[in-house]
Amino acid sequence: MDLIELTDVEKVFTVRRRAGLLRRERREVRAVDGISFRVPRGEMVGYIGPNGAGKSTTIKMLTGILVPSRGRLRVAGIDPSRDRARLARRIGVVFGQRTTLWWDLPLRDSYGLVRRMYRIPDARYRANLDRCVELLDLGALLDVPVRQLSLGQRMRGDVAAALLHDPEVLYLDEPTIGLDVVSKARVRGFLRDLNAERGTTVLLTTHDLTDIEQLCRRVMVIDHGRLVYDGALDGLHTVGGSERMLVVDLERELPPMRDVPGARVVRVEGPRQWLAFPATRSAAPLVAAVAERYPLLDLSVREPDIEQVIARLYGDGPPRT
């Protein structure tokens, strides 16, 4: 069953800009330009794209904050724009850079408020809190005012706050931004467990592609308001036309190896040469071809860098951040 359904969803903003002293220009901006996708229950999906591509507009429509200009949207069978309040009980949202915790109060108090706002039954609340406290290692932090928590601790606290009411779907906006390595690993591990054990559907936007590599089998890439890719992470390489690299150490310096079929030399450094070949092809025939023609000491295959792949998808150059 699909928990999230989008069909031809559009969001058009009218931007007014000062042009001259009194004149104002009106311009239409298509932040989301006809997006369709479905997310089955229990899936964990990465949603990525450069800033201004339409990521957060999509998330805001999915949470009912924004009303779509056109198209059909359903989350757990609910139309978010119509039934925002009913939907609120069934979703969890974490805005990475903005905490919803109470700055001057102990963490525990924030959870108490969540419990009453969402009217979570006592037993369920206690079970969920215990679980979050254990898995996110919050035990020692519960009675500490939030202002004294580190960024990583606060993020863990925020994630827990979004899960106390057992949401069916969790939206995470940059959940690991600014965190240290240990905190990142802990948050990721928790999300993985949550998804595996509870079957919570997770939609996550991030600039840190390691999040995606470690958590999501499926990734959607949005650019200029359109989905430019929706599929498995590996498949990105195919679409992005990415290349793997064969690094060859020869016995001595030789001219570039131009006679290896299906590969091209991209760099030569003394006896070491780099051969690029399509990521979709096997390396074996290439290795055989090189070994047959050249005095070989050693070789290794380097996988393409996902960041570069995505940069290429977005257009030329690195991701706009």
Partner: peptide, 13 residues
């Protein structure tokens, strides 16, 4: 500052 959105995703008017 963008914090208004939080109000819209909670089950309280």
């Amino acid at each position: 500052d963008g914090t208004f959105d939080q109000f819209l995703v909670r089950p309280v008017p």
